[in-house]
């Protein structure tokens, strides 16, 4: 996302486009990264329901992976996964 210069800012503290949070990457301060073992995943989508962000990528009702540009590494998906398919791995150790 290209950030506007000060002269390009709208008057007032406003965001004029709806639904643009996707463009704003907020996943840079994660300490632990959820890593999915797709061989274990049963596509129950508990992770998708519980994710406090919208960082679980789902396509055609199947869990496709994690949106690391927005995931903060809270670990809830890993906790709720009934088949332990998501493990939390320390960033930098990969």
């Amino acid at each position: 996302m290209k950030l506007p210069k000060w002269k390009e800012m709208p008057e007032g503290i406003v965001i004029l486009e709806a639904g643009n949070a996707q463009e704003y990457e907020t996943g840079s301060w994660r300490t632990f990264r959820p890593v999915v073992d797709k061989s274990k995943c049963i596509n129950c989508l508990f992770c998708w329901i519980y994710c406090p962000d919208t960082s679980i990528i789902v396509k055609d009702e199947k869990m496709e992976g994690i949106d690391y540009a927005h995931c903060k590494g809270c670990g809830i998906c890993s906790k709720v996964c009934p088949v332990k398919a998501i493990s939390m791995v320390e960033e930098g150790s990969l």
Binding site: G12, I13, V14, I15, L16, A18
Partner: peptide, 8 residues
Amino acid sequence: EHPFTVGP
């Protein structure tokens, strides 16, 4: 008609 976010 023109939704926007105020005070983000």
